[in-house]
């Protein structure tokens, strides 16, 4: 099989990785913020529940979570309730990454000195004004590096979806391996390198943009 054919096939399966990546990112960031507020809530049941959720998501293997999201509805409610593979994979990733993001958000929000909020309060700002005009950008600046770490990990984690038979790039490359072609597996790594190269570049740009204050 020619290099070109392999490239084409790997690329087409890599679109699945990309889809999972973008869906997860778009949904888990806001969900993570919500979870962060939940875990900081003064309403005890809310904070306990969200913290328990974060504990479960961070303490069990992502692979296992994929399997549970994919197989459990069918086992409990009957086969017609099975999610499509990609939807199950996306859901598991979103739930898992929201938990990690929430902890980063929580750290970022709690890391802003109380004096900032108090300064806003004595100037008669509302809670919303203080969050959006005083706290938020300082939080963003703090969390860009750790969020960036997670985002880069997410790019690679998308290949775990092959555990529930999503034919993403690593699954595709392994297929070539079964036909005694090992180099496509190594070649698949290049796709991740390029993608994460772009991600790293964009993160660097963001950090630089926020460099104007300390």
């Amino acid at each position: 099989m020619s290099f070109q054919t392999v490239t084409k096939m790997l690329l087409s399966s890599f679109t699945l990785n990309c889809q999972l990546f973008f869906i997860t990112l778009i949904l888990s960031l806001p969900l993570g913020l919500l979870v962060a507020f939940g875990s900081m809530s003064r309403v005890k049941p809310v904070s306990l529940l969200t913290r328990f959720y974060v504990y479960i998501m961070r303490s069990t293997p992502l692979m296992l979570q994929l399997a549970i999201v994919y197989y459990l509805p069918g086992i409990v409610f009957g086969p017609q309730y099975n999610l499509p593979k990609m939807a199950a994979a996306a859901l598991a990733f979103v739930l898992n990454y929201a938990a990690y993001f929430s902890e980063i958000f929580r750290g970022g929000i709690q890391g802003v000195p109380v004096g900032q909020r108090e300064a806003g309060e004595v100037l008669g700002m509302t809670k919303g004004q203080i969050f959006f005009h005083v706290t938020l950008l300082q939080v963003v600046k703090r969390i860009v590096p750790p969020i960036g770490n997670e985002v880069i990990t997410l790019v690679k984690d998308t290949s775990l979806a092959n555990f529930i038979m999503v034919k993403e790039i690593i699954a595709m490359a392994k297929d070539f391996g079964n036909r005694a072609m090992i180099w496509p597996l190594f070649y698949a790594g290049v796709f991740f390198l390029v993608f994460n190269g772009v991600v790293t570049f964009l993160l660097g740009r963001m950090e630089k943009k926020l460099d104007y204050f300390r």
């Binding site: 004096g115 900032q116 008669g124 204050f213």
Partner: peptide, 21 residues
């Protein structure tokens, strides 16, 4: 309270300026 606290201004020991402005 938000209205009434405007009767007072407060200068903090640690300045508490907003760093991004």
């Amino acid at each position: 309270v938000r209205q009434k606290r405007l009767h007072f201004g407060l200068v903090f020991q640690g300045f508490n300026l907003f760093p991004q402005y």
